[in-house]
Nucleic acid binder design. Structure first.
Length: 191
DNA sequence: AATTAACTCAACCGCGAAACC
DNA sequence: GGGTTTCGCGGTTGAGTTAAT
């Protein structure tokens, strides 16, 4: 049965990637009528999308004030600082990074940073079992942020520079901290 | 050159909160 | 005040891309 030929009231809803045409329709409609009231916007624009989908597309991709390109070193440090402060409050964190979306920051955290946290936890578990054998059970690492600082960030720092496109020699990356790194660590530890 | 693994990111889903009637 | 609708957020998924073997 072809849904598009149905004359019932349940409107077919499109899913999946947005087409260029849909993008243009949504952009033009918002330019003329403004954003908000997404369900009725989707209907009046003639898009076979949910209001939710339109909102997401606009906020994460079509908005003119979006900043494209890699997360910079400064932005990355700010994300880490704010995440240490607020946890997974992505929209709140995004408000402090103009042009970045909560989805973008969330993805960045999960793909780039969380990976290193897991690595650090594994490392700490191994190190912990060794130190326990040596009788230092009271020095258990207390937080994810602390794990990052104690075990993980020196490695991570080198990757951050790669992402931001800055040409800092590898030998400087591996074992040394910038003032910004040290500054951000205070937030990580001091929460 | 082909295959596989790892990575990235756009988009969807579910849920709780807020707004509306 | 209570029910319904809409919105916004955070978590998750899956397709596409890139890197490694």
């Amino acid at each position: 049965m072809d849904k598009t030929q149905s004359n019932s009231q349940d409107v077919e809803v499109r899913k999946g990637p947005w087409t260029l045409e849909e993008d243009l329709i949504l952009t033009n409609h918002i330019a003329n009528h403004g954003e908000g009231v997404w369900n009725s916007l989707a209907r009046s624009a003639g898009l076979k999308r949910t209001g939710k989908s339109c909102r997401l597309r606009w906020l994460n991709y079509l908005r003119p004030d979006l900043r494209r390109g890699n997360i910079t070193h400064e932005e990355q440090l700010l994300i880490m600082e704010l995440h240490a402060k607020w946890g997974n409050r992505w929209s709140k964190i995004a408000k402090h990074l103009p042009g970045r979306t909560d989805n973008e920051i969330k993805n960045y955290w999960r793909t780039r940073i969380q990976k290193h946290i897991k690595r650090a936890e594994t490392f700490a578990a191994l190190a912990g079992s060794e130190t326990n054998e040596q009788g230092s059970s009271g020095s258990q690492v207390s937080s994810t942020a602390e794990l990052m600082v104690t075990n993980c960030l020196p490695t991570f720092h080198g990757e951050v520079e790669a992402f931001s496109g800055e040409n800092i020699p590898q030998e400087l990356n591996e074992n040394y901290w910038s003032m910004e790194d040290l500054w951000s660590m205070q937030f990580l530890n001091g929460d």
